[in-house]
Write a protein that binds this DNA or RNA. Structure first.
Lengths: 188, 188
DNA sequence: CCACTAACGCAAATTATTTGCTTTTATACA
DNA sequence: TGTATAAAAGCAAATAATTTGCGTTAGTGG
């Protein structure tokens, strides 16, 4: 009865999941989110609507699932130079992606879902990425903010602005990073 | 054809709006959000479903409207002592309310709506409340953070935690306020 | 008091969702 | 290799939500 969280790769279930996810991405790219329906997604994915209803429950949950999958990091963030430079580059790209139309919509879909599992997942992704920079800095003996400081004073303000409709521009993002770095130096 | 944003008070339209809002609040208090439907809301409000569909569009939008109405501040925040004390008390209550089950759900409803007008409204409410503390501090010559500092380093982290499922506890909230106050003193 | 129109009610038509039952298909084990 | 098993998919009927056209009501301004 229960659907497994991570279907065995290559199985039928995995194929259906991939087809449905792809279908959702296609539709979101083509048309307005408000006119996307489960029957349409099902048709494009060559699947019956009831399959989607049984597996995901409703549109909200499906969209949240697709969004979370998209937001999952591919690997470790790029290494350019110092941990600070790496962080700056990463945050700037993060802000850009989240503030884009698609990114914003994904955020909303994730937060709107009744089940907060995807939201948690997202937070975990971000914390993981940041912890990589922290580890690098530590390895070099470079002074660096803590994870909590980065989450509270860099990530949170960016996300807040995006959600409440004030796009964070690159200059603003750099200022946030600069500030948190300055404080970490002082306290070190 | 168009529905006016603020119906004339006392008119039929205003009565319908009040009845529907009340109905929504009643239902959210009684039952799970997932089982609330427009036909049910309509019945309890003694209104036809089509009235609700025509006026609000869909459940998301209606819930966002109700939530935004609930979040609108009643008046100026309480005056207890210094601006700092006032701020501390207010933020603590703000965090509590937003982190509660109902508050969290309202936040989500507001953010999930296709139209971001309600989200913006909410942000404006918060900024307005904070600006009152700033004005008070200025009147007393008390050093105080700027609006941007408060939004970025107090409000944003609180909201982020709530949305991504880490309830901010009172101690954490006090620390945020303490930190932003400390910095404002340094820079003054 | 009358004309005007935004907003509502009603009901039929459409569309989405749920559900019981059947069939398919991976997988584990003989 | 088969064969048993169970998870997940398909199908179709039943239910529920949404949309829409049209007639009615009730505030508003003349």
């Amino acid at each position: 009865m229960g659907y497994r969280e991570n279907p065995r790769p290559g199985g039928r279930s995995a194929r259906v999941q991939a087809a449905v996810h792809q279908s959702v991405r296609d539709m979101l790219a083509t048309m307005d989110r408000a006119e996307v329906t489960i029957p349409m997604i099902a048709q494009r994915a060559n699947v019956t609507p009831s399959t989607i209803y049984r597996r995901w429950g409703d549109l909200q949950a499906l969209l949240a699932d697709v969004a979370a999958a998209h937001l999952r990091p591919e690997g470790e963030p790029a290494r350019i130079g110092s941990a600070r430079e790496d962080l700056e580059a990463w945050v700037e790209q993060y802000a850009d992606e989240m503030a884009s139309g698609v990114g914003r919509q994904m955020l909303r879909d994730i937060l709107a879902a009744a089940d907060s599992a995807n939201a948690e997942k997202c937070g975990t992704y971000t914390r993981y990425q940041l912890s990589v920079f922290i580890a690098r800095a530590e390895a070099c003996g470079e002074p660096f903010p803590t994870l909590a400081e980065l989450m509270d004073h860099v990530i949170s303000p960016i996300i807040y602005r995006i959600l409440f409709d004030q796009t964070p521009d690159p200059h603003y993002v750099r200022k946030l990073v600069a500030k948190v770095m300055r404080e970490s130096v002082v306290s070190a």
